[in-house]
Every structure is written in structure tokens, then in C-alpha cells.
Amino acid sequence: MSKSSVKFEILLFTVGFLFLSELKAQDFPRDTSYTVASSYAKYLKSFPEITMARAIAGEVIKEQKDLVYRDLGSRQLHVDVFSPKKIKKRAPLVVMVHGGGWISGDKSHMEELAKTLAGRGYVAATVEYRLSPEIEYPAGVQDVKYAIRWLKCQSKKMKIDSSRVAVLGASAGGQLAALVAYSSGVEKFEVEGGPDASSRVQAAVDMDGVLAFNHPESEEGTVAAKWLGGTYEEIPEIWDEASALYHVSSDDPPTLFLNSSYLRFHAGQDDVIEKLNGYGIESEVHQLGDRTPHTFWLFDPWFEPTADYISDFLDGIFKE
């Protein structure tokens, strides 16, 4: 065999090995049906004025992408962190959870909003969590809580004030954010061991995320059942357990609710606010116009007021 033939076979082996390694690294089910582009195409006919949102200029920011916050052995979970480039003292943290019906979506969907908040003085982290094609509830809840704990443990390196932490989510991510915020101390939602920090947060932002799966205002069905592991008729206790409404208590954080004009995504919100009011816990509600698409946080003309509502709310709680 000639030297050139040997080199060619070595090259083929190397390429094949790298290809198989990449397949192994991503060897878990994914649903990529929900993207910003597909959402834009969906709404364009009804809202011809919309454009894809871009970060609003503020302070110069620093980006750290695909940081591993948890190694599962079979694969790793990642977080992207956006922060002001020059932080004189430790800044509040906003942990951001993307939507996609618990079946699809990606942390990059929250990037423009994260950059905007970073430009306003926050450390903003967008979290990857496991979705229903890969694993059912409560893994996604555990992932978000684990990410919060991990980020708190990076407080010195990332100049995070771990006593000022908010969790923010959109759509399915809003449901998760509210559940994470209201379920401190629930053992089922925590991972034993791991980062030596609490998953407790001091503020929550829910953008069009349901607060009760089984509710007169809710229309959750097949997609929720895939994540929760069965229909309400089959496992009513799990549907209730996964609903933030049933975890509200006196030590829960102030909460901002941002709503589209689709009532189904606010299921349980009035009930939650009534409970928060009973405990003397602050809450705010804003609807982004009388006719607003579900994923309003992804598009102009709603992106800027969304960012303003969030930063104004968090400034009132966190800024010294």
C-alpha cells in the first residue's frame, strides 16, 4: 500500500471518528419545529408591521456562550451569560427560560432580551433545559433550579450579587419560571448534591406562561400531556403539582406578569395574584396592547416596551 493510500485511510478514519463523536455528543431527541423565524412567518400575515427584535443599545456588554452548568454524563447542559463589560460592583442576576411548549425552543431565543438587560446593568443568563422529546417533567424544572444554583456559585467570577436574583420566562418558560419561583423547598424539584447554593429567587417575571394547567381558562392538552407524562384524566395530581398556582406561599417573590391578548396563556393568573395579595406580596400586570401575538417578546413593536416593563420592575426591587 502506498504512503498516500495510508494517509488517505488515516484521514477517513479521523473524519469518521470525529463525525461519530459529534453524533454521540448530540445523541438525544430534539424538536426544532419552533424557531424565531417560524414564529415570525406565522404572525406576519396578521401583523404585517412586525420585525424581528434586536437588542436595544446600552452599556457595552460581555458575552460568554455555551458554558457548561451541568454534566449529565450522556450530555451537558449549557448557559449563555451576558453582562456589562465594566461592572464596578456585583450586579443583579436574571435567569432566563425560553418557550416552545416544553417540546421545542432554544436558549438563543432569549438572547436579544438578555443583551438588552445586560446593557441596563444586569447579568442575564439564558438557560438550556431538557425538553419532552428527551425527558419528561420534572427534569426541566430541576435543570432551571440547578442552573440558578450554579450561577450563584459563579458570583465572584461573574460579579453576580447572589442575593438579588430574578427568574424570567416566556410561554412554557414563563410557566417554568413561576413554578421555580414559587416552589422553594420542594425536594422533588431539586437535584441532590451539585452547586452549594439555594435555588431561591427574589423576583419573577412570567411572560404569557400558564399558572394552572387544569383551569377554566386553560386550553392545555396534548403538548402539556407529552411533558407531564399523561393527560389530566390520567394523572391529575401531576398536572396540579406542575402548576405554580398550587405552590404560592408567604415567602414567594414579587412577580411581574406580561400578557399577550391570548387569554389562554394567563390561566390561573388572577388566582395567583389573589393569593399574592393575601400575603402582601407585590405583583404587576401589563398587557402589551389590545391585539398582541403570543410571542410578543420576539418582535417589534412590542420588544422595547417589554424590555422597559422588565427593567423598570426589576430596578424597583433590586437597584440600590
Rank of each mutant, 00 (worst) to 15 (best):
D106P: 01
S104H: 06
V123Y: 02
D196Q: 13
M158W: 08
A125D: 07
S171R: 01
A224C: 10
Q142T: 11
G209W: 00
L179Y: 05
E237L: 06
C153V: 07
A212W: 01
E111N: 02
E112C: 02
G221P: 03
S132W: 01
A177Q: 07
Y122P: 04
S218I: 01
E190M: 08
K188M: 14
V167L: 03
E192S: 15
I148Q: 11
S104L: 04
Y137S: 07
E134W: 06
G99L: 00
S132M: 04
A204P: 03
Q202M: 12
V123K: 01
R120I: 04
A125C: 10
Y122N: 05
I135P: 02
A147F: 09
D196S: 15
V97N: 07
K152G: 07
A172W: 01
G174T: 06
Y232R: 06
V144R: 01
S104M: 10
P195H: 08
A224P: 11
R149S: 11
T222M: 13
I135Q: 13
S163E: 15
Q154G: 06
L168I: 12
E220R: 01
V141A: 15
A242I: 11
I103Y: 05
S171M: 02
L176W: 03
A118M: 02
A178N: 05
G174W: 03
A181C: 06
V205G: 08
G105F: 05
I148T: 09
R120N: 14
L176Q: 10
I238D: 12
G185R: 04
E187G: 10
G121R: 05
I238G: 14
G193Y: 05
F213V: 02
T231W: 01
E237V: 09
Y232T: 04
T116P: 09
E241M: 07
P216W: 01
P133Y: 04
E237T: 10
G185M: 12
A203V: 07
F213A: 09
Y146H: 15
S163Q: 14
Y232H: 15
V141D: 11
V141C: 15
P133S: 08
K107E: 09
E187N: 12
H215C: 11
Y129K: 03
A118W: 00
T116N: 04
E217V: 01
G209H: 01
L179D: 10
M110T: 09
Y122S: 08
E128D: 14
E134L: 09
G173K: 00
S184C: 09
G185H: 06
D196Y: 05
G169C: 11
G173A: 10
A118S: 12
E112K: 00
V186G: 10
